[in-house]
Design a binder for these strands. Structure first.
Lengths: 201, 201
DNA sequence: AGCATCTGACAATGCTTCTTGTCAAGTAGC
DNA sequence: GCTACTTGACAAGAAGCATTGTCAGATGCT
């Protein structure tokens, strides 16, 4: 602990954060494929090519790793949607449609991350629930900003409606994933848009 | 097993099904208050005033008991909605509004059952998920029948939209419960109706 | 009253996983 | 090459709970 020695050309700090990252990526894979409930600490560590001790070096618990994995996936997704939003400058509902297409396309392109993001995150524990709820609110705010750019975004009045719309999109996503991505990205985005348009009123 | 003796004036069969019922009612209370995850077999049995052996007499696993408890609660709710639907003969959206009011009122009147019905049922296991998904479909069909009494109810076309609307109502319910039933039943029902009206198109 | 059945309390077992500890093998710096 | 640090493999301990088994006491029938 006192001295930091170079190993493989990397400092102790670099090696540790590299291990952390390997664990997060392994967690996305393992939790997304087998499901969080069925995955053990051991399984994640094996997938990361590390032993259990390195798990406890970076994370206090499985839930902490799940949160890290979820945030990695969701930030990628939010960033993607933000890019689409910036690029698209049409009418509000057209813009929203483009974002929904990007959303569903991203989930289709990464089914493992999708499962983690949409299914596996729910009802794990209070701490995880809090993170997930915060992301849903962010998602709702994003939709609201896109469809009703007025002051309505911060009105408390539409809070429940906004939550409802987000719940609708998530439920549509769940059913779509369960169906094996049966419908086309375009069609699903269109269905979701129908409900999102409630926010434009 | 060979002979059936009367006990307390009841046959063996009666006594057994009485115990089963006590377990189900206890499960609604315990799972709804403490949460399914935090509840042990022992806790449910104590709440029912029975010992563990009687749990295994009537149920194969905790999940089986959860399913029974969920079905008890959800049948009560569906029956209530059906009654309201039968009594109300106004316009489609008025009728739907009345049903939503009854739905939210019922959940407010029975917070424990509500928590079981809305929160605790999710993501327990494949068997439970199947039961919950079936109820959501039934719920969607009910809304669809009310708002779009035409053939659209059985059209596969609106399947995802219907699922989305149900997801919206459930998410609104979750947020409302988490808020401690802050908004009035009328207001919440109104918010939910806004989204439900998508089905009327 | 006497016997068969039923009921309740509780202990024993078993299983699974987390979490920590030990030890040998590997690697860098002197 | 020697020493100190780092890593990986693995086992031991601990904790929690489900599930089954035992046994004494209670209840109804004859």
């Amino acid at each position: 602990m006192a001295t930091e020695r170079q190993y493989g050309g990397h400092s102790a700090e670099e090696r540790q954060s590299a291990r952390r990252e390997r664990l997060v990526e392994a967690a996305i894979r393992v939790y997304g494929e087998a499901g969080y409930r069925n995955a053990t600490v051991k399984a994640v560590c094996e997938a990361a090519g590390l032993t259990e001790r390195y798990f406890y070096e970076s994370f206090e618990s499985s839930e902490a790793l799940l949160i890290a994995a979820f945030e990695t996936v969701s930030h990628r997704l939010i960033d993607c949607l933000d890019r689409v939003r910036a690029q698209h400058a049409g009418a509000a509902d057209e813009r929203c449609h483009a974002m929904l297409r990007a959303y569903f396309q991203a989930l289709k392109d990464d089914p493992v991350g999708a499962r983690l993001f949409v299914l596996e995150i729910a009802r794990v524990g209070p701490a995880v629930d809090e993170v997930a709820a915060a992301l849903l609110r962010e998602f709702g705010a994003l939709l609201s900003r896109t469809l009703a750019p007025g002051a309505s975004a911060r009105l408390k009045k539409g809070e429940l409606v906004r939550a409802g719309v987000v719940g609708a999109v998530v439920e549509i996503t769940k059913v779509w994933i369960r169906s094996g991505y049966a419908k086309s990205v375009d069609a699903v985005a269109g269905d979701a848009l129908k409900i999102c348009c409630v926010l434009a009123q």
